[in-house]
Amino acid sequence: MPPNLQWQKSSFSAGDADNECLEIAASPATLHLRESDYPTTILTPPRAALQALFAEVKGKR
C-alpha cells in the first residue's frame, strides 16, 4: 500500500450506517481508489484508464 495517503470519501456518500462508498487518494504519480468496506484493497489504475473513466462519466451527464 502506498504510504501516507489521505483518503477522501465521495460527496455522494450518505455517511450513515450503510457506509458503502468510494474513497480516493492522490499521490504524485496517480490516483488510488478503494471501497470503504475493504480499505486494504486499493486499486491504482494507469493514467490512461482514469482518463477514459472520467471522460465516460462526464459524457453521461
Rank of each mutant, 00 (worst) to 15 (best):
M1G: 15
M1D: 11
M1Y: 06
P2R: 10
P3H: 02
N4K: 04
N4S: 13
N4G: 08
N4Q: 13
L5D: 06
L5C: 07
L5Q: 04
L5A: 09
Q6I: 11
Q6P: 00
Q6H: 13
Q6C: 09
W7A: 01
W7D: 01
Q8V: 14
Q8S: 11
Q8Y: 05
K9Y: 11
K9L: 08
S10G: 03
S11P: 01
S11M: 09
F12S: 04
S13V: 02
S13D: 05
A14E: 04
G15Q: 07
G15C: 07
D16N: 15
D16L: 07
D16P: 02
D18Q: 10
D18N: 15
N19H: 14
N19W: 05
N19Q: 12
E20G: 08
C21M: 03
C21N: 05
E23T: 03
E23W: 04
I24K: 12
I24R: 09
A25P: 00
A25I: 02
A26V: 07
A26S: 11
S27V: 01
S27I: 00
P28G: 04
A29M: 07
L31H: 15
L31C: 11
H32R: 12
H32V: 04
L33E: 04
L33G: 00
L33K: 02
L33A: 15
R34Q: 09
R34Y: 14
E35A: 06
S36N: 07
D37R: 15
D37V: 05
D37M: 02
D37Q: 08
D37F: 14
T40Q: 14
T40K: 12
T40E: 12
T40I: 07
T40H: 15
T41N: 05
I42Q: 01
L43F: 15
L43V: 14
L43S: 11
L43W: 11
L43N: 05
L43D: 11
P46F: 01
P46K: 05
P46T: 00
R47K: 10
A48I: 05
A48M: 06
A48V: 06
A49S: 14
Q51L: 13
Q51N: 13
L53E: 07
F54D: 01
A55G: 07
A55W: 00
E56K: 12
E56R: 14
E56M: 12
K58T: 02
K58W: 09
G59P: 08
K60C: 06
R61S: 14
R61A: 13
R61P: 01
